[in-house]
Design a protein around this nucleic acid. Structure first.
Lengths: 214, 214
DNA sequence: GTCTCCGTGTTCAATGTTGAACACTGGCCC
DNA sequence: GGGCCAGTGTTCAACATTGAACACGGAGAC
C-alpha cells in the first residue's frame, strides 16, 4: 500500500477506535471487508503508527495493562487536522489513471503472441465474472457491513460491468487481427520527434560494442 | 509503484529496446503516455535493473562508449520467461478491488461532516469531468500513440462514465440524509461477533489507564 | 579560451514496506 | 501440574522506493 494511503487509513482508524493498540487495528482492518483491498501488513501498522507519533499526529501511551506493557495510541489535534487534509485529497483526486498492473500489461501487449494475448484476456474475463459473482453472493448478506461501504460495492459492480464490455470488444479486435503483436509486423511507428528514434542509433552502437567487448 | 509492477515494466521495456541503458528507459517511460500512470522515479529504474540483473533476468554490460562508461542491459532467456509469467499474472488478475485512495476515503467517510463530504464529492465529480475532457482533447490527436494504448483510453473513458453516474447517485443519497456522518447518530451497528465489540471493553479500560497513569 | 547551460547517466542516504518470527498469556485437556 | 495450542502484541533485518544531487561532456555566446 502506498505511504499516503497507509497514513490516511491508520490515522482514520485510530480516530474511530481510540485509544487503541496496534493489534486491535490489525484485527479490525482484517475484519472489515477492507481485508480485500487494503493490504496492510502487521509491520506497516506498527511502523506507520510510530511515524505518525513521531510527527505529533498521534500520542503514544505506554500503559501497564495487568502484567503486560501495551502501546496505546490516541489522536492529537494536529493529527485530526492532518486526517481531514488527507481525506479530502483522497476523495477529491480522481484515480482513473492510477497505475494498475493491467495497464502495464496492456502497454506491453506487443511482446506477447496473439494466441497468448487471447488466452490471457479470456482468463481475465472469466476471473472478472467470478469476482463479481462472489461479490454479489458474499456481501449481500448485509447487516454485516455499514451502508457507506455497501455503496462502494455498487461502484465495483458497475466498474466490473464496464470493464467486461470493454474486454469483450477487445477480444473481438484481437481475433480480427488488430494490433501488431509478437512475431507480426508492427502496426505503428512513433512520430519522428519521439525519443524512440533517438534510441535506434544508440542501440545499434551498443549491439556492436557488446559484440566487440566480449 | 508496486514492486511486481516495476519488475514487469522494466523487464518488458528492456525487451522492447535492448540493448538499452537506464537513462534511455527513463526517457522512454516518461515519453509514453505512460507518464501519467506509471510513476517511475529514476532511482527505481536503476535499482530495479540492478535487482533484475542480480537475479539473472537481465545481463548487465559495462561498455566504454567513447570516453564514457555506460551500463547497458539485455534480457536473458530466464528474464524472458519471467516476463511472460508476470505479464500473464498482470493481465489475468482483475484489479477491481485494488486499494485506491478513494476506497480508503469512502471507508472513513463517517469521520467527516455532511457538508464536508458533500463538498469533497462534488469536487471529485468536477475533477473527474476535467480529467476525461483532457483525455478526449489531448490524446485523440493520435498517430502519437500505438493502437493498443488507444484501446486503454477507451476503457478509462468508460470507467470515468461509470464512476460519474455512481457519484451522482451517491451525492443524492448524502443530500437525502443517508449514512451516519460526523456529529450524527450512527446508522449502523456491527453484529455481535464483530471484533468491534471486543474492542469496546478494552477501550474503556485504556481510557481509565491513561487518565490514571498520566 | 572560458563561462554557462542543458542533456546524459548514475548514485546514495533517508524512508517506507514486508512478513516471518518472537514473546507472552490464558484456557483446555489429561 | 504439565503440555499444548490459539490468541495477543510487537520487533526486526532484508528489501524496495524516493528524489535530490552528483559528475561529466558538448554546444553556443562572448
Amino acid at each position: 500500500m502506498a505511504a499516503t494511503e497507509t497514513r490516511l487509513l491508520l490515522l482514520g482508524t485510530v480516530m474511530l477506535f481510540e485509544p487503541v493498540n496496534g493489534y486491535q487495528l490489525r484485527r479490525e482492518l482484517l475484519s472489515w471487508q477492507v481485508e480485500d483491498w487494503a493490504h496492510v501488513n502487521p509491520g506497516s501498522i506498527y511502523s506507520g503508527l510510530a511515524t505518525l507519533a513521531k510527527q505529533g499526529n498521534l500520542d503514544r501511551h505506554d500503559l501497564v495493562d495487568g502484567s503486560r506493557e501495551v502501546a496505546v495510541y490516541t489522536s492529537t489535534p494536529l493529527g485530526r487536522r492532518e486526517f481531514e487534509k488527507l481525506w479530502r485529497e483522497a476523495v477529491e483526486r480522481p484515480d482513473l489513471l492510477s497505475p494498475l498492473p493491467f495497464h502495464t500489461g496492456m502497454a506491453l501487449m506487443p511482446l506477447m503472441s496473439r494466441t497468448a494475448v487471447r488466452e490471457a484476456l479470456q482468463t481475465r474475463l472469466a476471473n472478472l465474472d467470478a469476482t463479481t459473482r462472489d461479490q454479489l453472493a458474499h456481501e449481500v448478506p448485509a447487516g454485516a457491513v455499514p451502508p457507506h461501504v455497501l455503496a462502494l460495492a455498487d461502484l465495483w459492480m458497475g466498474m466490473g460491468q464496464t470493464e467486461r464490455e470493454w474486454l469483450v470488444t477487445l477480444v473481438a479486435r484481437v481475433d480480427r487481427g488488430d494490433f501488431g503483436l509478437r512475431g507480426e509486423p508492427a502496426d505503428w511507428q512513433a512520430p519522428a520527434d519521439d525519443p524512440g528514434w533517438q534510441m535506434a542509433t544508440d542501440r545499434q552502437r551498443y549491439v556492436e560494442l557488446i559484440a566487440r567487448q566480449r
